[in-house]
Design a binder for these strands. Sequence first.
DNA 1: TACGAGTCTATACCGAGTATACTTTGATAT
DNA 2: ATATCAAAGTATACTCGGTATAGACTCGTA
Lengths: 224, 224
Amino acid sequence: MQDQASPTPDRRTRKRLATRQAISDSATRLFMEHGFDQVTVDQIAEAADVGRMTVFNHFPRKEDMFFDREDEVRGLVSAAIHGRDDGTSPVAALRLLADRCIEDRNPLLPLFGPSLRFVATALASEALKARARQMCSAFTRVLATMLAESVDRPAEDPDAHLLAGLLVATWSVAFFEGYNVADRHGDTAAAGRIFLRLIDRGFQAAAVAAAGTPYVEAGPQRGF
Amino acid sequence: MQDQASPTPDRRTRKRLATRQAISDSATRLFMEHGFDQVTVDQIAEAADVGRMTVFNHFPRKEDMFFDREDEVRGLVSAAIHGRDDGTSPVAALRLLADRCIEDRNPLLPLFGPSLRFVATALASEALKARARQMCSAFTRVLATMLAESVDRPAEDPDAHLLAGLLVATWSVAFFEGYNVADRHGDTAAAGRIFLRLIDRGFQAAAVAAAGTPYVEAGPQRGF
DNA sequence: TACGAGTCTATACCGAGTATACTTTGATAT
DNA sequence: ATATCAAAGTATACTCGGTATAGACTCGTA
């Protein structure tokens, strides 16, 4: 499914990836240390010992140096939907994904440990929040398409878009409320609980909105 | 509720508002004509016959010249919630608001006539879409607070935030699907229908998420 | 009429992002 | 091994949104 068969692909490629990694590392360190808005691209280039243009070669936008795991999130969700068991609806599969993320403290759901600093840094910058919202928006469209295709409906199905919108909104709120608890009280277990509680309520609601569609009815037993 | 008691407030104030209006008019015309990203602030200043700094005095961000009715939306929603009848829940009040917006073709719900060009212009610009998302995000927080206060709960109530998130997500999707219909088929009646249909489904779902809370239970008869 | 505050303006600056043309370096074919 | 081509890196110059600052003008008021 993913071509990671590349331990040592090529010298040129290796160097390119090394450069990219150097930039990413320097950027991450500087962002965490001084805040996203306080770090200039020139400083990053300097720290990574490359030219300014090289930075933009690898990362078209400054924000891309911060959020560089968008694809992994999509892969995770895609796998959950397409690899779900028979008799499990797409929405039920996503709820199970939420459970699993909490269980194994998946860093793609940054509610634990060092990830909290990452979130705090993001929330401190208007530019990063804007980028996060853009990713949510784009992801909602992708999710709608994934949902529609998983039950053989056209990608433009309004029901799929409504469902995707409700699911992403739920996830966002649940994450944010969970983060607040983790941040204020330092209680990661409580954060996970409130996250899952809100996911449950929101997904249950989303299932109602999609009642009568294949998105929530799967096989003999109805799990939503 | 709004202090519009100002037909001729003051010469200085009059001049300031005139300058602001000149800038706004020039900007709107240029944006519609050439697209938001194709118009520079210098061109706007030139067209309005003011200095560049004067533009930024009145509109801190370029995007503010495009979206200048945020307050009206908040006012409309606030009035709907706080002025609702006894026995009508906050969520039911918002659904009624949606009905009314469609009925009287409220320009704050730009699904009709010339407003379509406005939306098309906004959708053609990444910067404007980003600003729109930011407004949605801010409004979700405001709505959560309004909902919470309207039923005497603390502003941080997680249920209120989840509910607000679901309502805004529903409104967004409903609007977008409605816009697509209006834009592709030129059928404003059909656009209104699909908008209301999705609002209904989404709000019904939101009511499920808020089941057991005062947000959806009001008085003897339960309208959600 | 003098003063002070609010408005407008010019100038200089910063930082993200683009365009372009040039150099270097690694892969490949002869 | 060497010529060759493309990919990667680089320097330079530019555009544009936005900020800082200080000065000019104008209106309301003491």
